[in-house]
């Protein structure tokens, strides 16, 4: 099962003729993803990796029945690409692009109100449902099918954590990179709610970082809404100084808010174990699964 995307998801690649998009289109196809169309204005009629290219998302949807898209469009045009995908009433839109102006995202989020589309990102590695489909840039080979859902604000930490899970024999349902920007389409609680309703997902790993209070909010939500699915966590940025942006646009401690210590405290307060270092994420998940009595069930690979 997993969440949001599977082997039947029909995917458009927006900006498919770009170098990175072409490279990742090949990777996504190799993973088994149904890439049915690409969109680059002015390039209709071409093909990329055997995928037909259209001028607009609407054309691509009409011709192929696509229901999802992944966006690899430069930052200054990416917000418009999201709007176009939302307008075409796609179910899931994944935006990989980093450095979209924040106020463009404010407008995008306003435009999306009342619409059916779920946006993942921007500034994210995308989403992967093990052995079914991947939209984005997550390396497929580190994943194994299983019962742990992964939610992360960071790309490489998603890979690092998944690698540790797989090495420990713990397979995954879906890994979702929600992105490092302050304003995004999907936050921890949204992703947690989806995992809560997924019968295949038995436990969740949350990877957060400094900035904002989404992890604190998630801790509260988990305590109130998801008592029967154990959660383990990791938070990066314990040593980050206040007022400094640590790579991600959203990774900044401002006005005393958004410290790693606050997040760890909030998670611990509701019984969620937080790995002490990045090297112990896999171990912490194993420990959490054992404590919940579902380790054997989750030991799938």
């Amino acid at each position: 099962m997993g969440i949001l995307v599977n082997k039947d998801t029909k995917v458009i690649v927006q900006g498919i003729t770009g170098k990175a998009a072409t490279f990742h289109t090949k990777q996504m196809l190799e993973y088994g993803t149904k890439i049915v169309a690409g969109v680059t204005p002015g390039k209709a009629g071409q093909t990329v990796e055997g995928v037909p290219v259209f001028n607009t998302v609407r054309d691509a949807v009409e011709a192929t029945g696509a229901n999802a898209s992944v966006i690899y469009v430069p930052a200054r045009f990416a917000a418009d690409s999201i709007l176009e995908a939302v307008d075409a009433e796609l179910d899931v839109v994944v935006c990989i692009t980093e450095h979209i102006p924040v106020q463009d995202m404010v407008k995008v989020r306003r435009y999306m109100e009342g619409k059916k589309t779920r946006l993942i990102g921007p500034n994210c590695p995308g989403i992967l449902t093990a052995d079914e489909a991947k939209l984005g840039i997550i390396p497929g080979y580190i994943h194994r099918k299983g019962h742990v859902g992964v939610i992360s604000r960071s790309g490489t930490l998603t890979y690092e954590a998944t690698f540790q899970l797989t090495a420990a024999g713990i397979g995954q349902t879906t890994a979702i990179g929600i992105g490092g920007d302050p304003i995004k389409g999907t936050d921890f609680i949204d992703a947690l709610a989806l995992f809560k309703d997924d019968p295949d997902t038995l436990a969740v790993l949350m990877i957060g970082e400094i900035g904002g209070t989404a992890e604190e909010d998630a801790a509260k939500w988990i305590a109130e809404n998801m008592p029967d699915k154990p959660v383990a966590a990791f938070i990066s940025g314990r040593q980050a100084p206040p007022g400094k942006r640590m790579g991600h646009a959203g990774a900044i401690i401002s006005g005393g808010k958004g410290t790693a210590a606050d997040k760890i405290k909030a998670l611990n307060a509701v019984g969620i174990e937080v790995a002490d270092t990045v090297a112990h994420i896999g171990e912490t998940v194993v420990k959490t699964l054992k404590k919940a009595g579902i380790y054997e069930q989750c030991h799938t690979c």
């Binding site: 990066s236 640590m246 790579g247 270092t277 990045v278």
Partner: peptide
Amino acid sequence: VNGAGLAMATVDIIKY
């Protein structure tokens, strides 16, 4: 490091 999240986590593990 490659990646902002892993870079933050690496700073943390050095301190650890």
